[in-house]
Amino acid sequence: MKVIRIAAALLIGADGRTLLVRKRGTQAFMQPGGKIDAGESPVDALARELHEELGLRIDPQEAQFLGEFSAVAANEPGFEVNCQLYRLAVAHEVLPAAEIEEIVWVDAGKVDHLQLAPLTRDSILPLYRKLAV
């Protein structure tokens, strides 16, 4: 199986909820982030993607590494995503840009109404629930 290397953010808002995004032309919600370019560190890729997709400027040194996770890709059949996950606190407003069509803030419990990417559903949200306790 082909692997897509990504960096993603568990963004935590001031109210403790986390941000999920949905890309244009897709159904599944997932963490913000994206592909790591050749020669780019995961945290630098994350900073670039968060700025492109959400207008968010982060200090890479504030990103707390939470681990590496893998799952079947939500939008690329036959691919697996390998994700470097970082936790970041967000105090200001976030707006969808670039290929992001929709954003939603969710708490640890109420996501049954959303279609979720496998990585988000099976790995990241369970971790978020543990961290939120």
Rank of each mutant, 00 (worst) to 15 (best):
M1A: 10
V3E: 15
V3N: 04
I4M: 12
R5I: 00
I6Y: 00
A7F: 03
A8E: 11
A9K: 09
A9L: 09
A9H: 04
A9D: 07
L11C: 12
I12P: 08
G13V: 01
G13A: 10
D15Y: 01
D15S: 12
G16Q: 07
L20H: 11
L20V: 12
L20N: 04
R22H: 10
K23M: 06
K23V: 06
G25M: 09
T26E: 12
T26K: 10
Q27H: 14
Q27E: 15
A28Y: 05
F29L: 10
M30I: 03
G33N: 01
G34R: 07
G34K: 07
K35C: 00
I36A: 07
I36F: 01
D37L: 13
A38M: 02
A38T: 13
E40S: 04
E40V: 02
S41P: 00
A45H: 06
L46F: 04
A47L: 02
R48M: 11
E49A: 14
L50I: 01
L50N: 07
H51M: 08
H51E: 15
E52M: 03
E52V: 13
E53L: 12
L54M: 08
L56P: 03
L56A: 08
L56N: 05
L56M: 15
R57Q: 12
R57D: 08
R57L: 14
I58Q: 03
D59Y: 06
D59E: 13
P60D: 07
P60W: 08
P60H: 04
E62T: 14
E62A: 14
A63Q: 08
A63H: 06
Q64G: 00
G67T: 13
G67K: 09
G67H: 08
S70G: 11
A73K: 05
F79Q: 11
F79M: 12
E80S: 13
V81T: 13
V81G: 01
V81E: 15
N82G: 00
C83L: 12
C83F: 07
R87K: 14
R87A: 13
R87E: 11
A89T: 08
A91H: 04
E93V: 01
E93R: 05
V94F: 07
P96S: 09
A97P: 00
A98D: 09
I100P: 05
I100M: 05
E101M: 10
E101I: 00
E101R: 09
E102G: 00
W105S: 13
V106F: 10
D107P: 10
D107K: 07
D107A: 02
A108M: 04
G109T: 03
G109M: 06
K110M: 02
V111C: 11
D112W: 04
L114N: 13
L114M: 12
L114A: 07
Q115M: 10
L116I: 01
L116S: 06
L116G: 03
A117K: 00
A117F: 09
A117S: 14
A117P: 05
P118T: 02
P118A: 05
P118C: 08
P118F: 08
L119Q: 04
L119C: 02
T120E: 09
T120C: 15
D122I: 01
D122H: 14
D122T: 13
S123V: 08
I124M: 10
I124G: 00
L125E: 06
L125F: 09
P126N: 11
L127K: 12
L127H: 02
A132K: 07
A132M: 08
A132D: 03
A132C: 00
V133T: 11
V133R: 12
V133W: 02
